[in-house]
Design a protein around this nucleic acid. Sequence first.
RNA 1: GGGGCGCUAGCUCAUCCGGUAGAGCAACGGACUUUUAAUCCGUUGGUGCGGGGUUCGAGUCCCCGGCGCCUCACCA
Length: 506
Amino acid sequence: MAESTLDRIRRERLEKAEALREMGINPFANDFAVTDSLADLSRNYADCVENPEGPPADAPRHSIAARVVAKRVMGKLSFLRLRDGSGEFQLMLRKDIMDEENYLRVRRYSDVGDFVAATGPVIRTRTGELSILADDARILTKSLRPLPEKWHGLTDVETRFRQRYVDLVMNPEVREVFRKRAGILRYMRAFLDERGFLEVETPMLQTIAGGAAAKPFKTFHNALGVPMFLRIAPELYLKRLVVGGIERVYELNRNFRNEGLSHWHNPEFTMIEFYMAYATYEDLIELTEELLSGLVLDVTGSHTIAWGDEEISFERPFQRLSVRDAIRTHLGRPDLALETLDDVLGLMGELGIEPPKPADYGRVLMEIYETVAESKLIQPTFITEFPVEVSPLARRNETDPRFVDRFELIIGGKEVANAFSELNDPVDQKGRFEGQLAAKEEGDDEAHEMDEDYVRALEYGMPPTAGEGIGIDRIAMLLTGYNNIREVILFPHMRPEQVEEDGNVE
RNA sequence: GGGGCGCUAGCUCAUCCGGUAGAGCAACGGACUUUUAAUCCGUUGGUGCGGGGUUCGAGUCCCCGGCGCCUCACCA
């Protein structure tokens, strides 16, 4: 079979690496001491001007190493555009300044994509570009595969996500997204740490996947001989810790839900969940406003972010709306009765909405809310007064036991946070679990399992507590302006590709 | 899961009605001491996502499959 372009390039580059070895240069060396990042040089020499005499003899020399992203050879003079984790800088190689043999070697055996090391003073060229004028340079790491084209770069979305390493090399703005994401995590940790919360890690492998309504991934522990699940939420473990006296606790890590993929859903996603004893969901509304408005300001420098054609404001206070009022508002019917099963069944029929299973008051009400209101809530909005049927872990409202003391925070039409005053009555909790089991019988395949140990923990006594979960990926989407979750996850899940032994894609 | 669109050289893209696949970048050889997508001369590179069908002839039309994107449904 004929040799493909890619095969030929790889062969040629392997031959270059071999030639370097024969000249005593290790093409995969690790013996070079870097003194400056490229950004350091750009910053420190911003005021440097061109000097026709060349650099003064006592000019400081700098040692840099970085990936070659462009190579311009002009005979006895060559320019290499370098990029490292901090930025870009130009490397200037002159035959009359370097050892001639070395100059010719770097010129001939280096390729775009290689890592190159160089030492020399910094100058400004005749055309105004800052450069290292190398008196010594060498190929530090040989690259065997060609990088995408310099002008259009890598744009194919599938390749960008599957080969994120190439995406990061070619598209510096991608690194910015993940810098912002790290900033979000850092801010949230600092915010909670300052308020006396303890960061913990609870099991991701669980024998009962509880704490949320979702389908889990199933696996198996060989030595124990038991089926296990990847957690869908850390909730029940964190509340066990509150029982144990860790009165402010949080966990920031992954959850796994065996559901469809979409631009808002990845099978594993990152959530911060925190619990605060002697607090109510109303306290968490205050805390959430403070956290998010501060976070947005910290990460973006403003309280307002652009979202598609809209602007989203994180100025406090955020809007508050009950589930029923959200329905009324978005249907434009302020006097609509939504108090009984007949009320909501009638409206469901009128709107042509498929009935949930089972079609009880709470599930039907939520179905209507999600259909008519949720996606229209662009500005940050706390939705409150959730029905008890869909909230098996939340504390009942004191005056209206059909509802629980819970909110969801909706931003950009999507649920970003979910919080409630926790149910700490073990008898009520046991009854709720039993209600969930009954709902499962009636067709709700995401209903909770009974968790006897959790009920036992509550029987020892959990102080009054409020807890909240915030979806980090969605916050990251909002703050980076991407409406695709894959843009804010380094390695989003995709169907596996078939890769041949030599690394070529079939 | 449903519907729509796409998949051609390593990358970014062409190829009109079905007539035997082309460019830029990259690579290779050469020239070149101030480039910024360097320039100039020359050269190479393709199982056209996979399989089947129709046809004298298929990248192009039809069918099956794969993968991706958009969208709807479900979910945070």
